[in-house]
Structure formats: structure tokens, C-alpha cells
Nucleic acid binder design. Structure first.
Lengths: 239, 239
DNA sequence: GAGTGGTCTAGACCACCTA
DNA sequence: AGGTGGTCTAGACCACTCG
């Protein structure tokens, strides 16, 4: 039969779960400290932590660096197929989005990037990195690669707010084909620090390859999302 | 700065990672037992386990019930947008697929199902559940709901192998629109047992709503995938 | 029956955050 | 400075699997 989860940690998890469901703990509320929890439920810290990690995996709670555990709130609904603007669709969901550029530089394609973007090795690229989130909480890190050869002068554009906007406006590039690759992974130490998560935190990796009407790759994105902040929604129309 | 992962467990993780990358440990190979590992690397079981769980989160290794830890092999590439047959696309990837029907029965729609399938409450449905995987390892559990009103006689069809096949053949239903909803979650105890995973194991939840050319919902799927067995690939054509 | 992972106890020290 | 989570030690018992 099922290898039953331990009785004690399950009890702690159930207790907290019910407090959340009953509304005693509201989104963004802070949970009791691990030591308090352990004492009041007659167990040890290791066991309480086991329960907390379980609820974290379920997406019910999250931890902030070394400040404590909190109840999660609404996830961001994300439709990676559309060239929608992050700031817009997050605001439409009643959240307050933010976006911070971490990096913008010119690089040349190495083997891996050359094959992903279908350009020759050493072709000039623009690399862009940004941190985005909602309601003051970081949600994902995005790294974007743009082939300068196909988008002349792209480096001079204001890419801070939205690449999609620049594509549509200045380049008249429709997103003809979008290829998505979605996998569960773990955050590196650097990524985790930026996302206010412990190293190794479970994340959703989304890889996007965007092609224009001519079939050329015009954008390659790598996104690392906190697993508890995201809901991917895709709509496919074959008609 | 980054809340650095502990030195010891990181050392154990790095050691195992390098053994895997160097090819000393091959896919499906068994790792040393937790006790051996702890002793040879001069640490305790709790710490070794921390490292093992980290590698598990990264998708490098997995555990089988109480039998031990193993190196993971190739993931299944899955394109949920197409009405492709599981047995076919897995075989195309050089893997040996299997599919086991767990349940097949007639039910009536409750509130939730009625709203998902856009039928009236108490409308007749067929519920189907199956366990699928590759190379002898379970990968996901799928629960399918079919509205009998729109697919008369569907219960009598042989749905064991492929719902898509029956749709295309007997009902001439093209999959006109597919709506996907993808989230990271945790397995319930029952699901975990079927998937040979510990309870609370991280999973990818995929919800599919399929509509025919008339815009009616003809299929509603709920899939729970082991996070280490899956790679979702979607291709969107806006041209 | 021997060995495995799954869980738990009861401590400890550290790095970091907040006041 | 005091409290928080992050990590670690050194044991223990249990449920299960396998030979």
C-alpha cells in the first residue's frame, strides 16, 4: 500500500491546512514560528519543517528568506502563446506588477545559442535579463536573446518595458509561431537569491522560441518561475 | 546574499552529481544506500537525504518506494495540443510505453464537472482513469470525463487504448480547440502510491479541455505527471 | 532476516533579519 | 540583541522489500 506519510508531520500539516481553509490565516499572513509550532503541537522542529515543506510543495505557503512562513495569495495566470504585455495582463488580474531589468548587453552566439536561434556561431545577439513579479513578490527571472542581424538597431530600442511592444511597433513582426518547452526544475543559488527562495527551490522552466512570418527565429526566452506563483494557460486553435 | 545551502549536503550532492555526469552512474543505476553514503562521506543520514532530495528536485535521480535511489533516464516529450496517441509518440522516442486502465464508469456531473464540461448538472458522463508510463516506470495518472450526450454510445466503445482514436474514427470529431492549464502541485497519497512516489511528491498538473468544431466541450482531462518524467512541448501557429 | 528508505527525537550552532 | 529560519549531529524505531 501507500507508504503513509508520517503521522506527526501529517498532523501538523493538516492543522495548518485547516487554519488556512477556515480563513484563520489569510493570504500573506505570517505563520507561527517553527519553534512555536513545534512546542504547541508537541513535536520537534524537524517534524514541523517537514509539514511546512509539504504545504510549500502544495503551493499553500511560502517562505521568505529567513523572515518566516507566509500564506500564498493568488497565482499569476500566464499565457505564453500571446505577445501580451506582462504589465498589462498582471494588472488585468487585479495584481500590481513590477519589472526590473537586471542586465542588457551585446554578446555573440555560442554553440548552444547559435543552434537555438538558428544563427551562425559568433553572430551578434542582445541579451536581456529581468526580474518580474506582482504585489511586491518576485515571480520569475527571464533571460531573452534577440538576434541583431534580424532586428537591426534593436540594442538601441527601449526594451525595458516590453520586447513584444517593440517587435510589434518598430519591426512590424507578428509572432507567427511560438514553440514552448515546459519542464519542472530547481533554481540555482543565484536565481534563488533573486527570487527570495531557498537554493534548489522547485521552479517551472519555460523556454520560448518565437518565429516571424518568414519562419526565422526572432526571440529566444528562458523563464524560471517560482512554482507557487504561476498558472500557465494556453489555448490552441486548430480550426 | 544568497542563503547558501549547507556546506555538507552541498558536498554530497556535488559528489553524486559528478559521478552521474562522469558516467560512473548510468541511467537506471542504483545509488549507494543512504547509510553507505553517509559513512563514506563522513556525515549523517539526514544530511545525505537532504542532498538526495536536492538531486531529486533537479530531476537527476528518483526513488522507488523503499527500494532505493536510482539515476533517472530520458523524459517523455509530450505535446498536449495534438490528438496524438500516447503509445505512438512514446514509442517514437525509443521508449516502451504502457497504459493500464484503472477505472471506467458512468457518472453524473456534479457542479464542478458541469461547469468544466459546460453541461447541466446531473448530465451523464463517462469517467475513465488510467495509469501510463514508459520502460516499466509509471509517469502519470489521467482522469478523463466524456459527455455522453454529445458522444452517444461512447461508453460501449473500446476506450482502453486511445480516446483520440475513437473520437477521430467513430465520431469524426476534430479537436478544434484545446485549452490547457498547467500548474505545479503535489501528489495525494493515493496518486503517489500508483506512481511509485512518496506522498506529496512534486507533480505537474495538466488540465485539458477539448472542443469540437461547433465549440462544444467533448473531453475534459486531468493529468498528474511525475515531475521528473515529463517535458511538455507545445507549438502554436498564429499564421 | 537483513537491508532499505521513511519518520521522528532532542538537542546544537550558524547566518541573517528586524527592532 | 533577540528571534527567525537553515543546517547539522547522533542516535532511534518502523514499514516495507528482497533474497
Amino acid at each position: 500500500m501507500a507508504a503513509g506519510r508520517g503521522v506527526t508531520s501529517a498532523r501538523v500539516a493538516a492543522e495548518l491546512r485547516s487554519r488556512i481553509e477556515r480563513g484563520e490565516l489569510l493570504p500573506e499572513d505570517r505563520l507561527p514560528s517553527e519553534r512555536e509550532l513545534s512546542e504547541s503541537l508537541h513535536t520537534t522542529r524537524v517534524t514541523s519543517r517537514e509539514a511546512l515543506k509539504q504545504l510549500e510543495a502544495e503551493g499553500l505557503i511560502y517562505r521568505s528568506n529567513r523572515r518566516g512562513w507566509f500564506v500564498t495569495s493568488q497565482r499569476i495566470n500566464y499565457n505564453p502563446s500571446r505577445a501580451a504585455f506582462f504589465m498589462d495582463y498582471v494588472a488585468d488580474q487585479g495584481l500590481v506588477p513590477f519589472s526590473r531589468q537586471l542586465l542588457k548587453k551585446r554578446i555573440v552566439a555560442d554553440d548552444r545559442l547559435a543552434s537555438m536561434l538558428e544563427v551562425s556561431v559568433k553572430a551578434p545577439l542582445v541579451e536581456l535579463q529581468r526580474l518580474r513579479g506582482a504585489n511586491g513578490r518576485p515571480a520569475y527571472i527571464e533571460t531573452i536573446y534577440l538576434p541583431e542581424g534580424r532586428l537591426p538597431g534593436i540594442y538601441e530600442c527601449d526594451l525595458e518595458r516590453s520586447v513584444s511592444a517593440v517587435m510589434l511597433g518598430d519591426y512590424d513582426q507578428q509572432y507567427a509561431v511560438v514553440e514552448l518547452d515546459i519542464t519542472v526544475g530547481a533554481l540555482s543559488a543565484g536565481q534563488a537569491a533573486l527570487l527570495d527562495a531557498p537554493p534548489g527551490y522547485t521552479c517551472l522552466c519555460v523556454r520560448r522560441v518565437v518565429r516571424n512570418a518568414a519562419g526565422e527565429v526572432v526571440e529566444y526566452d528562458l523563464e524560471h518561475w517560482r512554482h507557487d506563483s504561476l498558472n500557465i494557460q494556453v489555448r490552441l486553435d486548430n480550426s
